[in-house]
Design a protein around this nucleic acid. Structure first.
Lengths: 109, 109
DNA sequence: CGACTCCGTAAGTCGTAACTTACGGTTCGT
DNA sequence: ACGAACCGTAAGTTACGACTTACGGAGTCG
């Protein structure tokens, strides 16, 4: 059920609020209310975004009392990035890829 | 003026039609009508998408008789990819980047 | 010049994603 | 057991992007 591929990664990260949530969860696991406190939208809005992210397998949740703590799902993040990379390869194959030739990468990984 | 940064890369590539255009232009330079012939939308729709892509510096156009030939702009593509990479670094710094090697240490619901 | 091709823009319609408020369920503390 | 804290979902509103048709401009060829 995790890492659902039926949703385009562009749809997932297309929303700024959702990107902010992902960035925040990358720093630390947080409850819904804690996320909403630092976002310009209401708490239910955050819940709805989290549902989308969870359905896509990008985040996982864990009960902690009355709170629900969300964290990033490494496998989902990995799958997401793979999909984006796939686009780039499809888009730029047969085309001079001048991005990687830029050699501004500070470190290989 | 090229490589306008005021538009989010997610907004640019968020639309499937726009992604198809980019992928197609990566293969070869094409006129508006030629692009529209292989897309499920009308020619003006393609024109509007090309305007967005051009304003963002992703494509450049060249007059050829009555036709307008569009091609990808390498600098724009490079800049776009940099912006996306920036997001990933911001999102995943301080977080174990498991893209290259992950494990499904996951619990759901 | 006149007809034809190719294209960009204007104007308007429409679907949908994102948001709000309202409500009910679950859990914990006293 | 009662109230408070925390959350998910339903219902409804709204803003906006993508699309269409209609039109006019620019270029080409006879």
């Amino acid at each position: 059920m995790a890492t659902n591929e039926s949703v385009s990664p562009w749809d997932l990260l297309g929303d700024p609020t959702r990107r902010a949530i992902v960035e925040r969860l990358a720093t630390q696991a947080l409850a819904v209310g804690e996320l909403a406190d630092h976002l310009p939208v209401s708490r239910p809005a955050v819940s709805q975004h989290l549902k989308v992210l969870k359905d896509a397998g990008l985040v996982s949740d864990r009960a902690d009392g009355t709170r629900r703590v969300y964290r990033l799902n490494p496998a989902g993040v990995s799958a997401l990035r793979d999909q984006l990379d796939t686009f780039w390869q499809r888009a730029l194959s047969g085309y001079q890829d001048v991005v990687e030739d830029d050699t501004t990468t500070q470190e290989d990984s």
